[in-house]
Design a protein around this nucleic acid. Structure first.
Lengths: 217, 217
DNA sequence: CATAACAAACCGAACGTTCGTTTTGTAATT
DNA sequence: AATTACAAAACGAACGTTCGGTTTGTTATG
């Protein structure tokens, strides 16, 4: 099959996916009709079914695209991961995550749609394998730094994951929940505070007489 | 109007709200029909409209109930807030938040439904006033402790809000996203690590040569 | 090069249902 | 008798998917 046909298909498929992304992320999955998608994409309902077997496969495809993006080694965020310089990379992590959230906020909303309407069926694997992915990227280097006394506490991998997950969530609330400055300050300031807390904690250093490895109370 | 009529009404209203909560939190708002709610509640569609003007008011009512719960001064979590003992109260905060999330996970999912289907219209106020509420509870005591050198860094109120919001999010992912142990460890362990990081940070204390108030890089 | 056959892209109506809300009653309570 | 709780049918739509075509692009053939 030659190029013109492929091109026509690709254009229609892309229009359908784009329309569906906009509608699913602003109405939910079940409340979005195929007619709405068709109208928004500028194609017929029959044509959608020519390219996609059913509605759920459209949804699945959109989420798969998001996983492709966030797992792409060329993504700025993943390049920071591969350098494994935590906690020195916290500022860079925050910036890169803000960029991902700003560029892909609608796809991120699909995660919540999935949680509600599919009980997380299409996102489970990504979250279940999260710890393993971070271990693969940061494990070696963190172990080395811990051994050299450059990091303290328990498993430093938790620090990485906490920071990353938190930044994703924070920027999503700011952008998609419609509550900018929900910490009572602008993003930059809030991120600086988070980073400080993650690096140094909230308890003073030096003459506080408390041991870092002793749990309180 | 006397008691028997009120009782009948209350029973029906409660059944409708309970049915709607289950359906909205597992299907989304737009994909849940009034006939489904009626059937699940064991009443007629007409009867729902007798008690509620329209579908959205049911949804609104459910969220209002959640705000009532989380803002109730008698709630264990709010009693911890009122004592304002951060960061000593971190363990208690985590426990109380886990309890809220476990008891009200469906209502919490409505927040995400609102973000997607109503662009956060019914939840905005709660998040917008978050910082102010924390300031009212913790502001005075944190300022005192900071002045006495018991806390370090910038605004300690950020530490409280970070902890609380993070705990809510973490437990929600564990419970409602269907990915228990998504940090590669059980809840208890993960929470212990978070608390340690929030108190002491990930950088060692003592001979690290870095000043806590100096931003990195 | 022109043409016919073929395959894929595309369309819109139809199938068998379902929807939010209103209307018109009945039953129960006051 | 008046009011409230409740039910079921009706109003004016809308839905996921299939079906029976039409249109467009490609390939094979003379």
């Amino acid at each position: 099959m030659a190029r013109a046909k492929t091109l026509k298909s690709d254009i229609s498929i892309e229009a359908v996916l784009e329309a569906a992304l906009e509608l699913f992320s602003s109405q939910g999955y079940g409340a979005t009709s195929m007619r709405q998608i068709a109208e928004k994409a500028g194609v017929s309902v029959g044509n959608i079914y020519h390219h996609f077997k059913n509605k759920e496969l459209i949804f699945q495809r959109l989420l798969d695209r998001y996983w492709e993006i966030v797992l792409d080694p060329e993504l700025k965020l993943n390049r920071i991961f591969s350098k494994a310089e935590f906690p020195d990379d916290l500022e860079d992590l925050a910036d890169a995550i803000e960029e991902v959230v700003n560029n892909h906020s609608r796809k991120i909303l699909l995660i919540y749609v999935d949680v509600i309407e599919f009980r997380g069926a299409h996102i489970r694997k990504f979250y279940e394998t999260m710890a393993v992915r971070f271990e693969a990227q940061y494990g070696k280097n963190l172990a080395k730094r811990k051994k050299k006394g450059e990091l303290t506490g328990g498993d430093p991998l938790v620090g990485v994951m906490l920071a990353v997950r938190w930044f994703f969530y924070f920027f999503t609330v700011e952008k998609s929940f419609g509550v900018p400055m929900h910490f009572g300050m602008d993003n930059r300031q809030a991120i600086d505070e988070f980073i400080r807390i993650m690096r140094y904690g909230v308890l003073p250093r030096g003459n506080d007489g408390r041991q870092p490895d002793k749990l309180h109370g």
